[in-house]
C-alpha cells in the first residue's frame, strides 16, 4: 500500500507543478500591463495626442503624427489585402479537392510563415527601390502581404463550414452561382470573415520589423503616402532604445496607446464572433 501512497504523492506533486507553471506563464502579462499602464498613464494627456514630437531636452511633445501614420498605413494594407484575400478564400473554400487549390493552400501557409522582417525586404525591393524613397505606401504593401494569409484562412474556414443545403436552396431558386456565393454563402459567413479581418488588423497594427525600412519614421506630420511616415510602433522602438529618460516616458505612453489599439481590435473581433454568429 505504500506504493499507492507514493503514486498518489507523485500525482499531487505533478498537478501542483502543472498549475504553478501554467499560472506563472501569465505573470509576464500582468507585469507588462502593470508597467505600461503605470508608466504610460503618467505621461499621457491630451497634448500627447495632438502634438508633434519635441526635440530632446524640451519637455512635452506628442505622437500625433505616429497615431495618424499607423492608421493610414493599416488602412492602406486593409484596402489592398482584403479584396484579394476574400476572393482567394472563396476560391479555396469552393475548391476543396482540387490540385491547384491544394498548391495555393501550401503557398498561403508559406506566406504565413515568412518572418515579417523578410516581408519588409520584399516591400523595399518592390516599392522603395523603384520609387527611390521610403514611403507609407511601401509599408502598407508589406503589412498587406502579412495580412493576406490571415484573412484568406479565416475566410476559407468560415465559408467551408456553411452547410451545403443552403447553397442548394439558393440554386433551386434559380439563383446563379455568383449570386449564390455573394448573397447567400458570403453573408452567412460574414461574421467569421470580419473576425479574421479584425484579428489581422490587430496583428499588423503592432508590426514593427517590416516598417523599419519601408515607413522608416518621420518626426513631422506627413499625410503623403509616397513619403516616409511615422507609426506608433516605430516611436516605441526608437524612443525606448534611446538613452534619454524623457523619451522613455514617451515610449511608455506610446506603448499604452498601441496596446489599446491592438487589444481593442482583438476584443472587437471576439465580440463580433460571439454576438453575431449566424445560426443554421
Amino acid at each position: 500500500m505504500d506504493n499507492l501512497r507514493i503514486r498518489i504523492l507523485k500525482d499531487k506533486i505533478f498537478s501542483f507543478l502543472v498549475v504553478i507553471l501554467a499560472f506563472l506563464a501569465c505573470l509576464p502579462l500582468f507585469l507588462i500591463l502593470g508597467f505600461i499602464i503605470r508608466n504610460g498613464a503618467l505621461s499621457i494627456n491630451l497634448d500627447f495626442f495632438i502634438h508633434l514630437p519635441k526635440p530632446v531636452g524640451v519637455e512635452g511633445g506628442g505622437i500625433s503624427n505616429a497615431i495618424v501614420g499607423t492608421f493610414i498605413i493599416v488602412f492602406i494594407a486593409f484596402i489592398i489585402a482584403t479584396p484579394f484575400a476574400i476572393f482567394a478564400g472563396i476560391y479555396l473554400s469552393e475548391n476543396r479537392k482540387n490540385l491547384l487549390a491544394e498548391i495555393m493552400r501550401v503557398s498561403v501557409d508559406i506566406l504565413a510563415s515568412i518572418p515579417s522582417i523578410v516581408i519588409g525586404i520584399i516591400a523595399y525591393l518592390w516599392i522603395v527601390k523603384p520609387m527611390k524613397s521610403f514611403s507609407a505606401l511601401s509599408a502598407g504593401v508589406a503589412l498587406a502581404i502579412i495580412m493576406l494569409p490571415v484573412v484568406i484562412k479565416s475566410t476559407e474556414e468560415t465559408l467551408a463550414m456553411i452547410p451545403y443545403s443552403l447553397k442548394e436552396a439558393s440554386f433551386a431558386l434559380g439563383v446563379p452561382y455568383y449570386r449564390t456565393i455573394l448573397k447567400v454563402i458570403f453573408p452567412a459567413g460574414l461574421s467569421g470573415v470580419i473576425t479574421g479581418i479584425l484579428i489581422a488588423i490587430s496583428r499588423i497594427a503592432g508590426e514593427t520589423a517590416p516598417l523599419l525600412f519601408t515607413a522608416f519614421g518621420n518626426p513631422f506630420m506627413n499625410l503623403n503616402i509616397t513619403k516616409p511616415m511615422n507609426t506608433i510602433t516605430l516611436v516605441v522602438f526608437n524612443y525606448s532604445t534611446s538613452p534619454y529618460e524623457q523619451w522613455h516616458k514617451i515610449a511608455w505612453a506610446a506603448s499604452l496607446v498601441l496596446l489599446i489599439i491592438v487589444l481593442g481590435f482583438n476584443l472587437l473581433s471576439r465580440i463580433i464572433s460571439r454576438k453575431w454568429k449566424v445560426k443554421f
Binding site: I32, F35, A205, G206, T208, L258, N266
Partner: peptide, 25 residues
C-alpha cells in the same frame, strides 16, 4: 477562463512592446 484569456492577451501584445518590457525589466 482566466488562463485562456490571459494567454490570448499575451499572444496579442506586439513584439516591440515585449522588447521594451525586456529592456526595462
Amino acid at each position: 477562463g482566466f488562463l485562456k484569456n490571459s494567454i490570448d492577451l499575451l499572444s496579442g501584445i506586439p513584439s516591440v512592446v515585449y522588447g521594451f518590457f525586456g529592456l526595462f525589466l
